[in-house]
């Protein structure tokens, strides 16, 4: 087990390094640079800025400087906002996005699984059709439409919940729901098809032939086995949720880190783009690792060993 974790750690570092290198090269291969747009800037100021941020050095040197900086867990300054660093962005924004993301994740997983199971048990009857129509709507309607819809009715017309900003827990409800809708719909569809597959297996007959009641058969024999495909996608879904959504955070005025990546690209703010990409990749790698561990608890055929395949 320890051996396995160590191997995964080494691979995680290698993967991250590849991500960093590719992002770094891609970012610099796009024409222009962070300060080029501002045409009114005097030549001397421009040169100073270039020099200050090492942008005048050869790419290889910049790359080495950046890696050295990263080794000290420093993502560097934001080129555009003079007062905050990329670390500030993450330290201030991530807790908020994480909070929102976890709430959305709980909603998405709980309701997604429930709807998926109900749909599969009522295959080709109205609960199935209803759940699947709702999930198609959930997948195809963009989150900002749902968000504005919720704000309009729940917050403005009925005055049940606050409209926006990030203050009390009741402020988190509407954005969490808006954020949860799409992954929930996706999980529901996945769980339905996975349950249908498991319910058609021979061992379901064995379980029933033992005299187990229907809910025992479903809970103890079908549900757990049907979870595996859902667990597989949970890594990427969770990463997307906890790293924040630009749209939802903008609509509800939430100070999360969702805007970081978008603004970074918009401003060609190299350290911000690199920082958010690396952060995203690190979280994804970590969660995929957790998913792999979770597999072994759900399916005993999957074993963790120190040996690589």
């Amino acid at each position: 087990m320890l051996n396995y974790i160590f191997k995964r750690l080494v691979w995680a570092v290698v993967t991250l390094w590849v991500v960093i290198t590719i992002t770094f090269l891609l970012m610099h291969s796009i024409p222009g640079n962070p300060f080029a747009k501002e045409g009114t800037m005097p030549e001397a100021v421009y040169n100073n800025l270039q020099q200050y941020y090492h942008l005048d050095e050869p790419l290889a040197v910049q790359y080495v400087i950046y890696l050295k900086q990263l080794a000290q867990f420093d993502f560097g300054p934001s080129l555009k906002s003079k007062t905050i660093t990329v670390n500030d962005y993450i330290v201030n924004g991530f807790p908020v996005s994480l909070h929102l993301g976890i709430q959305a994740l709980i909603i998405a997983v709980c309701f997604g699984l429930i709807f998926g199971v109900i749909a599969s048990l009522n295959r080709n009857r109205w609960p199935d059709y209803l759940a699947m129509v709702l999930s198609i709507i959930g997948i195809s309607v963009p989150s900002f439409i749902l968000a504005t819809f919720l704000i309009n009715y729940v917050a403005v017309e009925w005055r049940l919940l606050p409209v926006a900003t990030w203050e009390s827990w009741s402020h988190t409800i509407l954005p969490s729901i808006s954020l949860a809708m799409m992954p929930m719909a996706y999980i529901a569809r996945l769980m339905r098809s996975s349950m249908l597959e498991v319910l058609g297996q021979d061992y379901m007959y064995t379980a029933k032939a033992k005299g187990l009641s229907r809910h025992m058969v479903i809970l103890q024999h079908a549900f757990r086995n049907a979870l595996l495909p859902v667990v597989t996608v949970l890594g990427i879904i969770t990463t997307n949720l906890v790293t924040g959504s630009f749209i939802i955070e903008k609509i509800f005025g939430i100070p999360g880190m969702g805007e970081m990546f978008v603004i970074g690209i918009f401003n060609r703010d190299y350290p911000v783009i690199l920082g958010s990409t690396i952060f995203y990749a690190a979280i994804l790698i970590f969660l995929v690792f957790l998913v792999d561990i979770a597999y072994t608890f759900i399916d005993p055929r999957i074993k963790i060993t120190g040996e690589g395949e």
């Binding site: 297996q201 021979d202 061992y203 064995t206 103890q220 024999h221 757990r224 759900i298 399916d299 005993p300």
Partner: peptide
Amino acid sequence: DPMTSLNPTL
């Protein structure tokens, strides 16, 4: 089929 008639996860 004894290969498929037992639940693989229990």
